[in-house]
Every structure is written in C-alpha cells, then in structure tokens.
Design a protein around this nucleic acid. Sequence first.
DNA 1: CGCCGACCTGATAACGCTACCATATAAACA
DNA 2: TGTTTATATGGTAGCGTTATCAGGTCGGCG
Lengths: 365, 365
Amino acid sequence: MTNSHRAKPEKDSGRHPTLVDIAERAGVAPMTVSRVVNENGYVSEAMREKVQRVVKELNYHPNGLARSLKRQRTQVVGILLPDIANPFSAELVRGIQEILLARGYASFICTSERSVEREQASLRALFDHRADGIIVATRETPTGNEWLSRLVERNLPMVLVGREFRHAQVDRVTADHQKGGYEATKYLISIGHKRIGFIGVSLANGKGLRRFQGYLAALRDHKLPVEEELMVGTDAVSGPGYSTQNDGYQGMKRLLSLRKPPTAAFGRNDFTAIGAMCALHDTGLAVPEDVSIVGFDNVPIAAYTSPPLTTVDQPTVEQGRQAASLLLERVEASTGSGPRARYEVNLNCHLVVRQSTGPKRPSRG
Amino acid sequence: MTNSHRAKPEKDSGRHPTLVDIAERAGVAPMTVSRVVNENGYVSEAMREKVQRVVKELNYHPNGLARSLKRQRTQVVGILLPDIANPFSAELVRGIQEILLARGYASFICTSERSVEREQASLRALFDHRADGIIVATRETPTGNEWLSRLVERNLPMVLVGREFRHAQVDRVTADHQKGGYEATKYLISIGHKRIGFIGVSLANGKGLRRFQGYLAALRDHKLPVEEELMVGTDAVSGPGYSTQNDGYQGMKRLLSLRKPPTAAFGRNDFTAIGAMCALHDTGLAVPEDVSIVGFDNVPIAAYTSPPLTTVDQPTVEQGRQAASLLLERVEASTGSGPRARYEVNLNCHLVVRQSTGPKRPSRG
DNA sequence: CGCCGACCTGATAACGCTACCATATAAACA
DNA sequence: TGTTTATATGGTAGCGTTATCAGGTCGGCG
C-alpha cells in the first residue's frame, strides 16, 4: 500500500527545509524547533541538542517571509537614496548601518536615480515588503512628498535626511548647510574677495538650497552687492546624479566671460568646484592666484585635487547614525504608546581650508 | 448586548487593510478581490469597478510578504556591492535596474563594506527574505566563496560581476581588464616609455588582478624588464572602499624616491591615478611632461582632473544589463526544466587617451 | 496528601494571500 | 434536449512561521 507516488525524498536538497522538516526528522513538534531556533521559551538541554544537530545537518534557515508575516515585523529598514555614486550616500549608509547592524536590523537600499517614478517604485517596494521603517534622503519634490504622506498615514516610521518635509510623525536629520555656506563665504570675504560667484544654482531656483542661502546671507551681512550675473547654473534638475563636474566647468566658463569676472567662486558641491578648477586650468588661470575656489561636502578626493580643495565638511556618518537611531526609536515605540514627539537634528558643518583659496594676486588690474 | 469591547472601528486607519477587509466592504469574496487586484481570471466589469472603488477608498496595497509566501517568489532581486561610493557600483546598478524595472522586479542593494562579516550578513538577509536571485559584485574571498556555494546549493540563482568563482550554476559578467591593462601599457610603450610603474598592487598579491596581469604581459611582449621596485602598493586590503587616492599618493612618492624613477605610471584605478598626480604636483613635477599617468575605469571625474586623465573605460552599465538579463533567465528558468548552461560574458574595454600621457620631456637627463 | 509553581512539550489557530477545485449561469452547438 | 464552452464567483486549503493555550511531569511545601 505505498500510496505515495511522490515518495518522501531522501535528500530533498534544493528545496528549502522547513521547520516541519526539522521537526519530523528530529522527532519533535514544530513548536519545539521554533523555540530552539529563536532561543525563547523552555527547552531541555537534550532536546535542544537534538534539534540543533538536525538544523545543522539540513542547513536550515527560517523563512523570513513566513516569520515576518507572523510576527508583523521584518527587522528590515529601507534606505532611499537619490543615487549611489555620491560619496555622501556612501558615508550616510555607513553611519546608518553601524547602528542598524548592532540592533539586529538588516537594511535594503533603493535609489531614485533622481526620477520621480523610480522613487515611487522604490517606496512601493519597501512598503509592500513591509519594511519596519524607512530613511529617506532623496531631494524634495511635490509628488514625492505626497507619497511620503501616504506612507506616514499608514504608520510607517520614517526619518528624513537633509530633506524638507514637515510632519508631526517624521523626524529629520540634517547638517547646517546654511551656516556652512555662510562660513565659507565669510572666509572668502575675510581674505579680501569682493566679487564671489556661486556655481550650480540661480537666484530663481535656489530658494531651497540652504548652502546658497548661507552664501547670500554672508554677502548681505558684509554689505556686498548680490549680483545675479555671478550666480550661474543649469536649471536642469536631471543629469547624472551628483551634479556635476560639467556644471562646474560650464559655470566657470560663463563667469570668466563676464565683463568683470569674480575673483572667487563657491561651488554648490565639490564636484562642481572640481569642474570649475578644470575650466580655470584650461583657460590658463591659476588657482588660487587668479581665482579662489571653494566646494561643499568634503568628499574624499577633495584632498587630492590640484590644488587640494578648500571645502565645507558635513558630518555625514553622524547624520546616518542619528537617523538610524531616531528611526529605531520610532519603530520600537510603534508597538506601544501613542505618537512620539518629533525630533529635528541639525548638525554643524565646518570649513576645511586647503589650497584652492587665497587672496587675489595683486597685479594685472 | 454589545459584546465587542473592541468594536469594529469605522476607520481603522493606520492598520493595513487586508484583502478580507476589502472583500467585506465590497460585499464579495476575497478571491474576487484578489482577481481584481492581480488582473487575472474572470471578473465582470461591474464587480471590478465595485472592488476597485473600495481599493482606492481604503488605499489598499497587497501585503508583499503574504503574497510572496504563497507564490513562492518575491519579485525581488538582491544586489551585493563592495561599497557604494564607487562610481562603478553606481553605473552597474543603473544597468541592472534598467532591466529589472522593465521586467517588474524590485531590487534591494546591500553592501559588504569590504568586511567578510557584513558580506555574510547581507547574503543572509537577502536569502532569508527569499530574494529570487542575487547579483554579486564583491571581491573574492575564501569565506565569501564558501557562502556563495551554499546559497547556490539552495538553488538561489546567482550572477557574478567581475569576480572569480567557478560553479556550473553561476553565470559571470565581466570586462576584459587584462586586455585593458595590456592596451594601456602598450600605448605608454608606443610613445616611448621604458620604465613604467604600477601603483596599487605588488607582484606578490597581484595574481588575481587582471589589469595588472595585462600590464605585465605587455611589458614581456615588448621585451621590457619586469622590475619589482616599480610595482608599489599597500597590501592592506581594508581601507575606505574604492582604494584609493592615498594609495596613489604614497605609491607615487615611493616611485619618485627610486634611484631611477619611472617615466610613466599605471594606476590600479582612477582614484589611485589621481592620488599619484597629486603627489607629482606636490613634488613640482609636471604631468605628462615629467611623468605620464594612466588610470583605469574612466570614472566621471577622470575627464575633469588637471590634466584630464588618460584611462581605460569599461562598459559598466552594459555589465549591469547583462548581469540582470542572465539572472532573470535563471530565475525564470528555475521554475521548470533542469539546469541551464553556464554563461560567461567578457566585454571589451577601451583606452581613452586624454592629457595625462605623452612622451617624456627629452631634457634634463 | 493535595496543591502550587517551575519546567517542558505539543496542538491549534492564525498572519494575508493565492492555487486549485467546485459551482453557477448563459450562450453555443449538435 | 443535452452537452460543451466561456464567463463569473465562491470555498478550501495551505505557504512557513509563531502566540497562545493546554497539558504534562516533577519537586517542594503546607
């Protein structure tokens, strides 16, 4: 009476063994196996060993899907980044993961590639797979914000990094770009510059860029004129991620073509600044003797450009740590009490003076 | 007789609505809702509309965990990267996602941060959450390979990028670094260089680095001596991700301190090359008049260094596309026939000549 | 001796979804 | 009329876990 046309395979290798497989093989109840695997509840020493041997033998790993479905949490945190090439992203992730790993959470990274559709798709994927929370570091867009609202209403714990979005249930971590921009500009002024360009933004679309606001504030505070022709930048929001050497190159060229070019220029970020230096070299001008250049972010190569770049350092890893900590607070609070207070963390930037800045060469006027 | 102390809430906002919630509210069976949501099976127009209205109303999204558990696939592909800062990683991901998105797969990225433990943790996370397949682009390690083997034995479809690991069930995509290294070196020789350094590796530990092997082969083919003192590099495998400007800087300094320094140097990657150029500028030497420099990878900034860097371009996005396509083939074949043939894709690199290379300035000997 | 509490194990019922089978109606064909 | 086919809906049974309860044994204590 061998009624099983598909006999129990001796070694069903390839098919994932389940709790039940282990239980049968060890001659115990599934529940007991569960207790051994999760190390909770009472299990006698003998039983524990017996089960553990079988677990090893079949190389059993619990099915995370089933576990998460039952437990109603995945121990997974989603990270949404604008792109990946960015050194900023890398350091942020390093900080985030430092905390998450220590607390037993895995993290899945998604990118938006600066596309609204991709951002949506990523949020969807993270939400649908029931990430316990998400850290969002993409740049602000109206539709993006709308999506975030919906997720928050679904009680998805969320922390934002460097991005504006006011919501009672969403924490925010950022660096004080405004102050950083202010300090850098103040420094340029202090060493004698009076015409200072800004590359990578324009008066029109720069409202949201805090480092640019800092630049403007410094000009005003020091009674320098805010001249629109000194602020250059393609308005194209698209482009290849961390925008960009080419922006910097073109922008500098434009500044140099002015009737009265600036003696110093502030790049929206280090890559812009590097592009600007390249344009200067191409034109036969020296940095900093002819034009001083300042960047922002202090990416690793900034110390190795020719000349090494003066820039504003932001504590990126620390932003990651803080974001992760706040998120886990929210995640772990969400099983329990009511709404938690909203946190807003604003870390300090500081100027790193290298050799791309100096007083204007006196001559040639 | 209100026996429900926790009455059915009118608007259970915050709690995720389920299929059953929708079904009840719409007055139909859960199965029907499922059919509407997944757009399969027969559903009358009237019913479809009724259900869809409720779906919108409650803002229903299927629980991916439950769905995946039942369907036995997640529509998620894992991507394991060595680190994130790397422009290579960024472009690879771009290529991968281009394919995956079009085929309805989401992708979750994990990083190893060059740590074996983190690599394991990431693989575990992806496996436990039952990714349908993974693309692995981390560098080879013995323990890493062992882990990969185990996953392959569990029938997890896998494709490797630029990494050595022979297994009948694992495809591999790479660029021909060997040939790229060969071409670049040949070019340096063709413009008159006879002493060419290599920065970022040593004869001892360079066995696995194909671009370095290409360099060696070119030297031999052109009857140039292979001098160990010309190959410099810290053996430290650790370090901050894409290694590194500092390696390049230190390496070049070392080469310059030789009794007879090279007239050209090949950087293991563009960042190494950039570091080397920085060292030359610091020393008051000109590129390429005193020393020519070649990099590898053609990262975006390579076109904007001073001078712009001659380097070897590898088709990174295309590697991503190919890897994703091969992986999906495997994933979709795994529901069905037996083992599939193994593919190995080896794409061409090509030399990009910019201004960091040229004949040695005749003088000064 | 009876009862309590600590210890140990197992059965049962979900978690939210969908594959599969069963049923039902209506139209289409012989 | 009976049989098939396309259309339309519902019921049932899991996917692989774990929370919860229910039942054991055993020693200790009144």
